[in-house]
Design a protein around this nucleic acid. Sequence first.
DNA 1: CTGGATATATGTCTAATACATATGTCCTAA
DNA 2: TTAGGACATATGTATTAGACATATATCCAG
Lengths: 110, 110
Amino acid sequence: MRRGGRGVRFLEPGLLALLRERPTHGYELIAELPTLVGTERVDVGNVYRALRGMEERGLVSSEWLDDLPGPAKRTYEITAEGRRALERWAQWLRDARDRIDQLIERIEGR
Amino acid sequence: MRRGGRGVRFLEPGLLALLRERPTHGYELIAELPTLVGTERVDVGNVYRALRGMEERGLVSSEWLDDLPGPAKRTYEITAEGRRALERWAQWLRDARDRIDQLIERIEGR
DNA sequence: CTGGATATATGTCTAATACATATGTCCTAA
DNA sequence: TTAGGACATATGTATTAGACATATATCCAG
């Protein structure tokens, strides 16, 4: 809905949620994100930017893996700080859901 | 959470929801929005901008009321097109809620 | 040797919101 | 009488998430 429009902020919490399950690289995350969050289209470029942004803030750490065949992968791992950030995101998401519910009820109810 | 950060897009659906209940003016809407949507801080300037934007798109119509004492008020009314837009918003909100639930479950559940 | 899957990255634009401030009416209390 | 607050609308600008586009490189299959 809407061209430059936004939805709920799923990218960072989604990435942290996946990385908490296991360390992996961007391309894998891009493949898994849509399943995690309904029909959410993922923007490849924004995923890599988000990962590096989170690394700058200490939420994840990364290292290159070029031992395997194929292009080198940068493998990301969640940090302790990242786990705390995910907890905060979870709280934010619960709040958002509750407020959406309130609004939906006001629109539909009655 | 977060400086220039955004939340869920509550402004337009919130305004349309209130206006569907009865026609009223911006200042009133600003007073009622926080109750409608939890602790949502409302930005006064953005409310007036949103109202005029919706008027340009035919979702609401307005007229000045300066008969009463006090500053003149621009009273807004929802249009048929506005009601349809609100229906679309309701669907968007339900989708958003469901996807948030999915993500929360993935974070907490397992 | 071409094209597709894998993999990461940068550039630019827009829309939604945050933050700040201006302008004006009218009423009440010091 | 006037200063300040409630009421009411408005504009200006900064931030930022996400949308859209494109570049680059490796490796493999046909």
